[in-house]
Simulated scan of single mutants.
Amino acid sequence: MSIIPQRSEMPSGTTYVAVGRGEPLVLIHGVGMKLEAWSPQIEALSEGFEVIAADLPGHGESAPLTGGTDLRDFVSRFLRFLTELGRGPVSVAGHSMGALIAAGLAVEAPELVRRVALLNGVHRRDPAARDAVRQRAAEIETGRFDREAPLRRWFGEGHEHEGAYALSRRLLAEVDQQGYATAYAAFANGDAVYADRWSEVICPALFLTGEGDLNSTPDMARAMAASTRLGQAVIISGHRHMVNLTAPEEVNAALADWMNRTGEEACHDA
């Protein structure tokens, strides 16, 4: 989309775009995607905010992390990115893997996070779901994996000719295999890393998912919201994992409402 300008790069190796003016909103995409996955949000929300969308390590044009990293390494990379931005406290929204990173930032770097939003975030998978996602991570590490399989989980059947599906397919086809494998391993093992610490987060926190998302479930969103001081769960009916692309108007409205909520100046008790 023409709304997305040429990327800039920080010394940390993170590439990003910044569009619009106003209070800063940082967007972090999910595994296998790149910042273009936020196109509807960049276009709509940049009318009232400065929207800063970044590529995950090893995705898009961002430098990779070395193999064997976990979620905390991704959080550390984005902590450095926020410091390099120099915007002071920002609002951070993440999707899927990006949601896990956003959660980590709210806990580990409270002085830099004004609000936090998790879109299609995972929280305490049950044993069967944990085993399944770890098995997928192992398959991706081998380089022999079906790049259509995530699309079937994310969208269900019958959506192959829709624009959101086509964009997601293209981004998955372009992702670097090792960058994908590294991020997916961290994603597969990251659902419980910050799960016990939501009660410490005191800033406005949004937990949004699709009603039909079988892996980032409505129950997960509600559980996180219930354990957070200013938590709010929003469930989008009739949609699944890529809800920011398939229901952009509803998601944009929820994000704009969250951006207008006030609370503490930081996301963590002193």
Results as ranks from 00 to 15, higher is better:
Thr69Arg: 13
His239Met: 09
Arg153Phe: 13
Ala185Leu: 10
Ala254Cys: 11
Ser237Glu: 15
Thr209Ser: 15
Arg169Gly: 14
His268Ala: 11
Leu171Arg: 05
Ala270Met: 07
Asp269Met: 11
Phe74Leu: 15
Ser199Lys: 06
Ala270Tyr: 09
Gly88Val: 04
Ser199Phe: 02
Val31Ala: 13
Gly68Met: 09
Leu208Thr: 02
Glu250Gly: 10
Ile235Leu: 06
Glu160Cys: 12
Arg125Gln: 12
Glu264Arg: 12
Gln232Met: 08
Leu27Ala: 10
Pro89Ser: 05
Arg261Asn: 05
Val31Asp: 05
Ser12Ile: 06
Glu139Cys: 03
Ala188Arg: 00
Val92Ile: 08
Gly231Tyr: 00
Val90Ser: 04
Thr209Val: 13
Glu84Trp: 05
Val243Trp: 04
His268Ile: 09
Ala149Leu: 12
Leu45Trp: 01
Ser199Gln: 08
Arg125Gly: 09
Ala149Ser: 12
Ala93Ile: 13
Arg136Pro: 07
Pro150Val: 08
Arg114Val: 01
Gly68Ala: 11
Val90His: 03
Glu84Gln: 06
Leu45Asp: 07
Val113Leu: 02
Ala129His: 08
Pro89Phe: 06
Thr66Lys: 12
Gly48Cys: 06
Pro40Asn: 04
Asp219Val: 14
Glu108Thr: 07
Ala99Phe: 04
Ala149Arg: 09
Trp198Asn: 03
Ala173Tyr: 13
Ile235Gly: 05
Ala192Pro: 01
Arg170Glu: 14
His59Pro: 04
Glu111Thr: 13
Arg136Asp: 07
Phe207Cys: 15
Pro57Met: 04
His268Cys: 10
Leu214Thr: 13
Val234Glu: 14
His159Val: 09
Ala254Tyr: 04
Met33Val: 11
Val26Pro: 00
Ala102Tyr: 04
Ala226Trp: 01
Arg147Ile: 12
Cys203Thr: 04
Leu119Met: 15
His241Ser: 15
Arg130Cys: 12
Trp38Cys: 03
Ala103Arg: 14
Ile28Met: 14
Gly20Lys: 00
Ala138Thr: 14
Gly13Gln: 02
Glu200Ser: 15
Ala195His: 08
Gly30Val: 07
Leu71Phe: 05
Ser216Lys: 01
Val234Asn: 06
Gly156Val: 12
Leu119Gly: 12
Met97Arg: 00
Ser12Thr: 08
Trp154Pro: 09
Leu214Gly: 14
Arg72Ile: 11
Glu211Met: 06
Leu172His: 13
Ala63Lys: 12
Pro5Trp: 00
Ala137His: 05
Ala183Phe: 05
Asn244Asp: 06
Ala166Gln: 15
Glu249Cys: 10
Pro57Asp: 07
Ala226Thr: 02
Ala109Asn: 01
Gly86Val: 06
Glu43Gly: 11
Pro127Trp: 00
Leu85Pro: 06
Val31Lys: 00
Val193Asn: 03
Pro24Ile: 07
Asp196Thr: 07
Ser12Leu: 01
Ala93Leu: 15
Glu111Gly: 14
Arg134Trp: 07
Glu139Pro: 01
Ala109Tyr: 00
Asn244Val: 08
Thr14Lys: 01
Ala129Cys: 03
Ile4Ala: 03
Leu71Arg: 00
Ala195Glu: 09
Ser96Lys: 03
His29Asp: 06
